[in-house]
Design a protein around this nucleic acid. Structure first.
Lengths: 216, 216
DNA sequence: GTATACACGTGATTC
DNA sequence: TGAATCACGTGTATA
């Protein structure tokens, strides 16, 4: 009545432990064809593969045993959940906007782009339109105002464009509200490059608008 | 030669499937004392328990089968990791955005030390005095204005101090002129830390003045 | 009827 | 040595 040892061809010789060592002695006969032998083999292999996959997803592994793999996975999930909770709290503290959707429920219903869309919608709801103003206020000085959707890296892009156009920042104001960002700034064309007459305000305004609309 | 059916007392009658239905027929004898029978039972129970615990830690469960439990756990871990990554990125972007102002702006305004001294002299000449104002404008909101010498890293230091004091930036204005820098900002005490009453404006103002005067 | 899933006891294997 | 873990084939319950 022993467990499986009825001899089997070494289908998987690359096992962890060289098991079923080609017994092939007596008692080989009695060939009792069990109806679900193959199915059971597949099931075992499947579970084995899943456990290995689970192990590969967990950074810390104390043991290779099945129970340990599952145990480590539990510990890791607990840590991840705690991290998510902390980060969510921190994020909520940082941004004053409530973002009613972003609750703990989203742990298993992640929607990366939904929030950005919501902000954009909210911005539209508040009557804030994408807009760029650019006008000359001095011999070499210009004044500009940009209103656009608040996206990560938007201010960096703005500064890069200013640098590219050869403008020096004199003063700048930045405010965010309801998913929108407003930048007001006085700039000055860099000395040595050219004088203010070589700047076409209309053209510069269109360029700024185009750049601000494009994604990073 | 069957699998385990050597009869066993129903230690765990509250199983998922009432298995081992008290066979107790013939072939009960042959009492082959297997040395590791009990140990194997414990091992099985252990793994079973771990899998149940794992299942309880995963919110979505498609199937009750062992392979499915592990599979769902893998999926869940993947989602958690993605969430952590997204939140971390967002958090970093949020707390780095103000710093970008300093970094980008200094691209144009960084000057040799000799000139910095000249700028300080010029600032004095223009009648601009080092000054810090700090007052309460709401339950948890404060308004501040800092006028000081324009030095590299001064804005970074300002942001660090704000973070240290537990203030969240609502809006901020930064302007430079004649070797001086002026920072106007509305800030808000972070939720969870304390209420606005625990902030002494006079004391905070002196602290800001002292920090801004000190060299990095 | 087939197909899948599980627990069982056992031999082999590793530490 | 034992104690722990594994893969195996089977009986049996479930869908």
């Amino acid at each position: 009545m022993g467990g499986g040892n009825k001899f089997q061809e070494p289908v998987k010789t690359s096992r962890r432990r060289q098991v079923r060592k080609e017994k092939e002695e007596d008692e080989v006969n009695e060939s009792f064809k069990s109806p679900n032998l193959e199915a059971e083999r597949r099931r075992r292999e499947k579970l084995h593969g899943r456990l290995m996959a689970l192990r590969s997803h967990v950074p810390i592994v104390t043991n290779m045993t099945k129970a340990s793999i599952v145990e480590d996975a539990i510990t890791y999930i607990g840590e991840l959940q705690k991290i998510v909770q902390n980060l969510t709290e921190k994020l909520h503290e940082m941004e004053e906007t409530p973002l009613e959707i972003y609750e703990q429920q989203t742990v298993h219903t992640i929607k990366p782009e939904v929030e950005a869309i919501d902000l954009k919608v909210e911005m539209k709801k508040m009557g804030i339109e994408e807009n760029v103003q650019f006008c000359k206020i001095g011999k070499r000085k210009f004044w500009l105002k940009i209103t656009t959707e608040k996206r990560p890296g938007i201010f960096t892009k703005f500064m890069e464009v200013m640098c590219l156009l050869g403008f020096e920042i004199i003063d700048i104001t930045l405010a965010t509200s309801n998913g929108a960002i407003i930048i007001c700034s006085s700039v000055q064309i860099l000395q040595g490059l050219c004088d203010g007459d070589s700047v076409d305000p209309e053209q510069t305004k269109d360029f700024l608008l185009e750049v601000m609309r494009s994604n990073p």
